[in-house]
Simulated assay, not measured.
Amino acid sequence: MRTAHARGLLPVRGAHPPDRRKKIQPRQTAVSGQDYTPTLDTVPCEPAGTFLGYFLPAALTIVFLLDLIGNGFVLTILISRRTTWHLADHYLFQLALSDLLLGLTLPFWAVQYGYGWSFGQVSCKVVGALFTINMYSSILLLVCISLSRYISIVHAVKFNKKQRPIHAVMICVFVWGLSCFLSWHELYFREVGSPLSDKTICFYKFDPENSNSLRIALQLTEFTIAFIVPLIFMLFFYSRIFCTLQGSRSNHSRRSQLVIVALLLVFFFCWAPYKSLQLIDTLQRMGYIARNCRFEEMLDIGLAVTETLGLFHVCINPIIYALVGVKFRKEIFRLFKRLSGQVVNSSVVSSKEGTIFTDSNCSYSKIM
């Protein structure tokens, strides 16, 4: 029996053709996303699930709690805001909602890894689809936020006044629609059963003849749309913003530059390790890397650990995209004042740098 990463939420191991030189069982996942096609010409590799059985439930629970607190707080601040939302606020709300919904699926996968799936067939498909939809939408919304900032700062004179809330709504609808389309396989292929042991799991049940090619296609699609393309766009947008802000000597400009560097580094270091191992797994499925039990065991553990690291990004998002901003800190100040029964009549709040920021209906929200 082979084990693999976490929940198998993304394309996972399927049946490989047996190696003629060394008999190795087709790679599987222990929890989900697996299809099992035994072959007479294979013998099993040793399982790698002992460490993951302890690590994943604990790690996913931590991610869930931090995600619930952080993104729940961001949504509360935005919903309670008395002033008109700016364009960036629409994207921030959608991002926090997407990250929160993604986090709500994690307890299901934590329970499955520890005890098996006991939530039924419909829940299996729905939870799998919710995870993938919100994984895609969360990353794509980061690109939307970088685009909004790019237009507002680099092309402030030419395009900024032409931006309208309806434009943000249309872009968000497109992002959610594309994310749903990219998650079709979750509803079509997910099943509940016991393909490898007595434990019932929620897994991908592919046709054995097409299993490997389907997994390769899904993994390459995710690698491209959920990592390479967003990284390229974010590098372009934020590099242009960084260069534009270089001409300013204000403290706010320098702080914004530091935030830009943080945004890129956090996104890259959270997702790059997992995507790199996922690419290695894809190359092995395609036959470019020879199969080996010890290598596959380490790859499975690496995928589980690095995927969990990537999921921590949904906890960091509310910090780097909202809580570090002057405007958002002002809203937090107002919320606590209202909760404590104090009425704030002034519409201006002084920042630590001594700059006065007033509420306005301009299309650019200074989140940074």
Results as ranks from 00 to 15, higher is better:
I225S: 11
R81E: 03
Y150V: 02
L78G: 09
A59F: 04
L283P: 09
D67R: 08
Y288K: 08
V63D: 07
V305P: 00
G8I: 06
W85F: 14
A58F: 13
S256H: 12
I77L: 15
V348R: 10
A88T: 12
I260P: 08
A217I: 00
S98E: 04
I316T: 10
E222D: 10
S256E: 12
S197Q: 01
N292G: 13
H252C: 10
G70L: 07
F268D: 05
G114D: 04
H313Q: 14
Q278S: 15
H86C: 08
L283E: 05
R7H: 10
I319L: 15
V324N: 03
L95Y: 00
L78W: 06
K327V: 09
F189R: 09
I62A: 10
T132E: 13
K275S: 10
G49M: 12
S179H: 01
N317S: 13
R255L: 12
L220T: 08
F237C: 14
I301R: 02
S138E: 02
R255A: 15
V261R: 10
L101R: 13
R338G: 03
A48L: 00
H252K: 11
I153M: 06
S253P: 07
A226H: 07
V259R: 10
F206R: 06
L65V: 13
V169K: 14
V348N: 07
G33C: 01
N292E: 08
L178P: 00
L214W: 08
K161C: 00
L101N: 05
Q121Y: 15
I24C: 01
T132D: 09
A262E: 01
A110F: 02
